[in-house]
Design a protein around this nucleic acid. Structure first.
Lengths: 334, 334
DNA sequence: TTGTAAGCGTTATCAT
DNA sequence: ATGATAACGCTTACAA
């Protein structure tokens, strides 16, 4: 069966059909100026008649440019990742680039394997959105002449690689935590999931050090994944704890807390305040509407791709950008 | 800058470094049997020393196999699409294939352009998940020797192309609509968004004809996108309409209805029943928990990829599968 | 303006 | 077991 798959129309056949050389066909395909309208027409005609499509493969091999860019992500299954993906793909599309996906899963070795595939796959550039990589691994790829933009890795601090950082930490620390600590003496709770990457780790650290700075106590809850488990956990907690300010990693966690609180006879936000760190549009759909920190991941995707293209075109060398998170105050905070 | 990007290590350099011919290096790369352990070691050594990575491009050109498969989707931004994407990518990964994305937007011409790019991009096969294509366009791609699996297109009925269909229609018609009509005389409302594709259209048609068959009246609401607008619309509706069974296209719509109903003093499910057609895990997070129809899109993705690979390997010709939607009854229906 | 031919980095078919 | 060498489908000097 696959043997019947051989007969793709090539540039030779077009050339023969049009009665010109393959070089001329190539010129027509690539809109080179020096072609007579007459011959151009002949060739175009042959092309459409035969249904010819150039092979991106052969073109890429000849020009060493694939117009393909690689995207490394841990999974396609999170809302904020697919928002970013959308941003990347849309912008790539409009600039004539294709996106190929490299998914790493949660294990380091998967990540390294993805990086390897990325290199052999010969993409023109790559966007890396994955907490698993260390600095050396990311810089290693640049040895292979693959321009890279890193999104939200801890590499933020180092200056060797182009990257987009999130303003999360600052917004969280100043607008939410410090503000609360200075206007209220209600205890703050940080609610996290295990293994949610370095972004979470940094946010937690920020939470903790701010408490230290202000000389205050705090609690960190680490809960297993799954809405139902969260809900039961907090239902239990609210039997004894009748007030608190909860900083939850994401909407589903925040929602579990508000549901458990309400059904434990607690009022929101009078008794219990909740904020979701990774907010989505679902934050304002439930009742009460979850206060949250929102980051426009589609915009992040747009920017990441734009930065990468600028590097590819040699317009810039090591661009760095910051996308700032916003604090959206809704029903669950005061 | 891009001029410095030339020095990718090639198979020639490895051959020279190892003191063998490039043919031998190729054999080592591809694990061909006829190589002395000694030479194999020499070559491996040179490979790691030089950091050589074969060019997938050149390999593909030589073998006419890219190990790349194309995915056409209207957008990466919907939960059920990214679930499917996840399923596809994970399975592809484990089988050694890469996924490249072709996004069509909402216009037909975008879709055709995506199809064109798909063809020139020289993928080994394609999965098409897009309502915009007509039969001839999908079959056209097969002229270019690109094996295709279609997911949930209206092409379901025709027999010329491999596809996965959803059992949505049947489940909705029998388990929900007909069941309700025969056990209650409460009016049913179908709540749709404009331009939500053929799946929605088919479901609506099914809703309508079932009502005709049972000799009953019904209402169809077409509401603009955006949770807030939905909410206000139903708040208004519930000033006069004090009961009803609402079939909503997706969670956010369903949630808007439950919120508006509750805040209009209506009880759920006593006065108002709601079901969401495209359910997600968010359906059971809010209160009340939305009854919904759930389709495991990750599983769909898995199957789509498996089918495609089977075609590629010549194991089968025109596989067809049906993935059945489940009715998950929670708080908002009786 | 058009054609010729070398090269892009592999694989695969011959010989040896 | 290894080495030449011709493809693969295209681009691009260089020649004509």
């Amino acid at each position: 069966m696959s043997d019947t798959f051989k007969d793709r129309v090539t540039i030779y056949e077009v050339a023969a059909a049009a009665g010109v050389s393959l070089a001329t066909v190539s010129r027509v395909i690539n809109n080179h100026p020096n072609v007579t309208p007459a011959t151009r027409a002949k060739v175009q005609n042959a092309i459409t008649r035969l249904g010819y499509r150039p092979s991106a493969l052969a073109q890429a091999l000849a020009t060493s440019k694939t117009t393909n860019i690689g995207l490394i992500i841990p999974s396609a299954n999170y809302v904020f990742i697919s928002n970013m993906l959308h941003g990347i793909v849309m912008r790539a599309n409009s600039l004539g680039y294709l996106i190929t996906l490299f998914v790493t899963g949660s294990k380091k070795e998967d990540a390294l394997e993805a990086m390897d595939k990325l290199i052999t796959s010969h993409v023109d550039g790559a966007i890396i959105f994955d907490d698993l990589f260390e600095e050396e691994e990311v810089t290693k790829i640049t040895n292979y002449q693959v321009p890279v933009v890193v999104v939200n890795n801890r590499l933020d601090e180092d200056e060797k690689v182009a990257c987009i950082t999130f303003g999360y930490e600052n917004t969280l620390r100043e607008e939410i935590i410090r503000h609360h600590l200075r206007t209220s003496d209600v205890l703050m709770h940080f609610v996290e999931l295990p293994n949610n990457g370095r972004l979470l780790e940094r946010l937690k650290r920020s939470f903790i050090t701010t408490h230290h700075e202000e000389g205050r106590n705090y609690i960190v809850h680490t809960v297993k994944d799954g809405y139902h488990g969260h809900y039961k956990y907090f239902k239990e907690l609210f039997k004894t704890t009748r007030q608190g300010f909860f900083v939850a990693y994401r909407d589903s966690l925040g929602r579990a807390i508000t549901n458990a609180a309400t059904e434990s006879g607690l009022r929101i936000p009078e008794d219990v305040q909740v904020i979701s760190l990774i907010g989505t549009r679902y934050a304002e759909q439930g009742r009460p509407k979850l206060s949250s920190m929102i980051l426009d991941m589609e915009e992040v995707g747009n920017k990441a791709l734009e930065m990468l293209i600028e590097i590819l075109e040699g317009k810039t060398h090591l661009p760095r950008q910051k996308v700032v998170a916003e604090y959206i105050k809704l029903d669950t905070t005061r």
